[in-house]
Amino acid sequence: MKKIKEKHSLAMRWFHWVNFPLLTIMIWSGMLIYWADDEYSFTVFGHTFFRFFPDWFYKLFNIPQRLAEGMAFHFLFMWFFAINGILYFFYTWFSGSWRELVPNKHSFKEAWQVLLHDLHLRKTAPPQGKYNAAQRVTYSAIIVMGLGSLLTGLAIYKPAQLNVLCNLLGGYHAARIEHFVLTIGYVLFFVVHVTQVVLAGWNNFSSVITGFELEEKQ
């Protein structure tokens, strides 16, 4: 006999699934903008490992020559992205669900154990609540990154009017790089996140839609 075990609140599911397409649109329109001055690369000791982005990549996603369009989309959807993120933050705060999310003093050590466990290098995983230590660290980091995108975005959007913010972030040039690096961070997060969701299986995935997991009745 299966039994309902409540897991994710409706609000949390809403914020998650609204954020996903919004962030996708922000990244896509951001690339339409970035293309117009695509000077970043991954270079260590003078050796360039990767240039953002190769021509085949631009062609694949139909990115070239769309700066104005990219800006128009970016500056519309930024509102929804920001509002959704801010509402999520306050919901998490006032509902108290931040307690299940924010890393505690054991989380960073335990996150390492979770990583070793997930890589099959360790037999046992540390005990966990709703989220394991690695999830606590990454899911909290992604919220901080969201705030980072908002602030670096504002700094490069209005560097004169918000010059204090822009200076705090190291100036216009640095803020644009930070904004870009955060975006690469989301893409890397996405790859790991989706892999983990696939590995965790259907019961876990469907709980982000239904709100509950099924467990065997004792």
């Binding site: 006999m1 299966k2 039994k3 309902i4 469907s206 839609i209 239904t210 709100g211 509950f212 099924l214 009745k217």
Partner: peptide, 14 residues
């Protein structure tokens, strides 16, 4: 029943 609840909530959610 628990089974009905599960089916109902799953259907509405999806």
């Amino acid at each position: 029943t628990e089974g009905q609840k599960i089916r109902r909530r799953t259907f509405i959610s999806f």
